[in-house]
Design a protein around this nucleic acid. Structure first.
Lengths: 340, 340
DNA sequence: CCACCCCGTGAGAGCGCTCTCTGCGGCAGC
DNA sequence: GCTGCCGCAGAGAGCGCTCTCACGGGGTGG
C-alpha cells in the first residue's frame, strides 16, 4: 500500500500488532483467536475490535510451525490421471470433499500419485505437510498405503481391497443397489438378464456384479450372461457387442456404470434393438451420462457428493481425535426413467 | 517409532540434525537443500548423504514462515459448484494444472468461492496462504478479482470479460475453431447451417458464436439460425427443439459444446433426422461425450489439459518474477468422425 | 612482500505463532 | 487474619527454516 512492489501485499498485520492495539499481550490475542479458555469478556471484545480494525488474518505457516499441525488435508488421486478426471464420479466426490472442508478450518490440497513417484507421494504425506489424507484410488494393487496409514489419518473412498485391515472408509452400498436394479428388471417381466460388469479389481466392480448375481439366484435364473468393461463408454460398447455375439437371447440388461451404458446403447441401436422394448436397461451412477441418453437411463442413484463429504467429515474427526465409526455405508435408490 | 502416539509420525528430522550429522552448519545444509550458490562439492555430498540417511524432508511451514513464501498456489472454482465438477472441461483443466505443478515445488490447494463467501475467499487469498491463484471462474459478473489480482499473481482460464485489464490468462482460440468447424460444414455442401451457441456471458459462448457467424458471412449465407444453451445436454436438447420448431430447413449444425450436442442428438433422433445424412453436426470439445455419441461427433479439439498446464506454468513464472506473456492462446484442431 | 578481494562458511537474528509456566489478585476456608 | 486456591494474564522459550552479515583463508596485483 505504501512502498514495496507496487500492488504487492502490504506487510500483513501480526498478532503482535493486534496485541499492541488492544493493549494486551500476544498470548491473550492468541487465546481470543483460538477462542480458548475464558478470557475476560471485555478484553476479548477489545481484541476482536483490534482484529477487525487491522483486518488481521492469522498466518497459517507460523501457526502450523508452532502448533505442529498444518490444518490441511490432501486428496490423493490415482495413477491413471486422465481417466480419473473425466469420470464424473471423481468430480462429484471432489466436490463433496471441497464442500465439506470449506465449512471447516481445513484447507484442501491435491496430489496426483502418478506424476510424482509413489515415493514422492509418501514423502509428501509423511513430511508434515498435511494432517491427513483422502484416497480416491480406486484400484487395489498398490499397497503403499499400508505404510502411510499407520502414521497419518487416512480415509478411503470405497472399501480398500488389500491389506489395510482396520482402515477407515466410506462406501456406497453397491451390492444391494445392484440387486435392486436387477429386481426391477425382474419385476418388468424380464427373464434373460445380462450384465456388463465393472473391473473385478475394485469394489464397485465386484459388488455390483455380486448384487446382480444374488438377485438372479433369488429368482432361480441363469446368471451366465456377464461381460466386463472398465467403466468407460468404449468398454461398455465392446462388452455389449460380445454379449450379443453370444447369440443367447437378452431382454434385460444391468450395466455397472452409466458411462458403459452409453456405450451399450449405441451397440443396441446398431443392432436395431429398442430400449426398453427389446431390451430393458438399468444402469448404475446417476450422472450426466445417465440423463443425457435417449431414452434416459433408469439407474441406481448413489450419493456421490455425499460420499466425498462424509469422507472429509470422517477424516477431520479422525484428525481431531473424535470418535469415528470405521466404516460408513451410503444407501442407494432407484431412479426410474425411460430405459426400464 | 518410539514413544508418542503409537503409529504417529516420529519426530521428523530437522535441518539441525542433518547439519550435525554432516558436520556442517545449518546454513550450509540450507544452501544444499536449496541448491543455491556454490557450496564446496565435497561438503555438499556429505550433506546429501546425511539427508538421505535421515530421510530428511524440509518442513514446509518453517520454510514458508522464514521465507515469506508459501510455495502453494490455489485453484479458485466458481460459484456453481456442482455444474463445474461434472463438466469434463473443468476436470481436464484441473488435471493439467495438477500435472504441471507436480513437477514443481508448488502445492495445489483448492477453494470453492461459493461455499465460502466471497469475502472469505478474498481473505484466504490475501491472508498469505498462497503465492498465487488460478481462476477458472467461467462467468463474468463477479469483479471481486479486481481487488485481488492487484495484490497477488492471478491467472485466469479464458479471457476475463470484465475489468481486469492487464490480467494474465490462457485461452483457447474459440473463434477460429468455430469458424473452421463451420467451414467444414460448408465444405460438405451444407448451406442451411444452424448453431446451438453457448451462454453469451462467457468468452467460450461468445467467441464460438462469432466464429460461426464469420464463416457464414464469408460464404454469404444466412446466420439467423441461432439458439442458445448453457453447455449442458438438457439445454442442448431444448435449443435443438426450438431450432426445429422454427420450421426453417437445417442441414448443418454447429454446436458449441459436446454436451449440448449430446442433447441435440436425442432430439434429432426423435424427429427421425439422420446424422449426418439429414443434418451434419460438428461440435466443440473433444471429450467423453463427443466420442460416446453415435455417430461419434466430429468436433473441434482443443488442448484442455494443456490449458491447465499453461495456466500453472504462467502463474509460477509470475510468482517467481520471470517474464511472462500476458496472454497465451491455444490453437484448436478438427477431429473428423462420423457426424459430418 | 603486503594490501585487497573474493569465495565459501558459520553465527545469529528473526519469521508469527503457540503454549507452558509463572505471577498476581481476590475469594473461601480454617 | 493467614494460608491455599483458583482464575486470568503475561513472559518467554521455542517450532524449523532462511538470510544477512561478518570472518577466515587463499589468490592476485602492485
Amino acid at each position: 500500500m505504501t512502498h514495496r512492489d507496487p500492488g504487492r501485499a502490504r506487510p500483513a498485520p501480526t498478532l503482535e500488532m493486534v496485541a499492541a492495539l488492544a493493549g494486551v499481550s500476544r498470548a491473550t490475542v492468541s487465546r481470543v483467536v483460538n477462542d480458548s479458555p475464558a478470557v475476560d469478556p471485555q478484553r476479548a471484545r477489545a481484541v476482536r475490535d483490534a482484529i477487525a480494525a487491522l483486518n488481521y488474518v492469522p498466518n497459517r505457516a507460523a501457526r502450523s510451525l508452532a502448533s505442529r499441525r498444518t490444518q490441511a488435508v490432501t486428496l490423493v488421486l490415482p495413477e491413471s490421471t486422465s481417466k480419473v478426471f473425466t469420470d464424473p464420479f471423481f468430480a462429484s466426490v471432489i466436490e463433496g470433499i471441497a464442500g465439506y472442508l470449506a465449512e471447516t478450518e481445513y484447507t484442501l490440497t491435491m496430489i496426483l500419485s502418478s506424476e510424482s513417484s509413489p515415493e514422492k507421494t509418501r514423502r509428501y504425506l509423511l513430511g508434515g505437510n498435511v494432517d491427513g489424507a483422502l484416497v480416491v484410488s480406486h484400484h487395489s494393487g498398490d499397497n503403499s498405503w499400508a505404510r502411510v496409514s499407520g502414521s497419518l489419518p487416512v480415509v478411503f473412498a470405497g472399501r480398500p481391497l488389500v491389506g489395510e485391515a482396520g482402515s477407515h472408509y466410506v462406501e456406497v452400498e453397491n451390492e444391494p443397489g445392484a440387486a435392486a436394479a436387477t429386481d426391477l428388471l425382474l419385476s418388468r417381466g424380464r427373464r434373460n438378464i445380462a450384465t456388463i460388469a465393472g473391473p473385478q479389481d475394485m469394489p464397485a466392480g465386484i459388488d455390483r456384479l455380486a448384487g446382480w448375481r444374488r438377485a438372479l439366484a433369488g429368482a432361480g435364473l441363469d446368471s451366465s450372461r456377464v461381460e466386463f468393461g472398465d467403466f468407460t463408454p468404449a468398454s461398455g460398447a465392446a462388452a455389449m457387442r460380445r454379449l450379443l455375439a453370444r447369440g443367447a437371447p437378452i431382454d434385460g440388461l444391468f450395466v455397472a456404470s452409466a458411462q458403459m451404458a452409453a456405450g451399450a446403447y449405441s451397440i443396441l441401436a446398431s443392432h436395431s434393438l429398442r430400449i426398453p422394448g427389446d431390451v430393458a436397461v438399468v444402469g448404475f451412477d446417476d450422472d450426466e451420462f445417465a440423463a443425457a441418453l435417449t431414452p434416459a437411463l433408469t439407474t441406481v442413484h448413489h450419493p456421490v457428493t455425499g460420499l466425498g463429504a462424509r469422507m472429509a467429515e470422517k477424516l477431520v474427526a479422525l484428525i481431531e481425535g473424535r470418535p469415528v465409526e470405521r466404516v460408513t455405508r451410503l444407501g442407494t435408490s432407484l431412479v426410474l426413467r425411460g430405459s426400464a
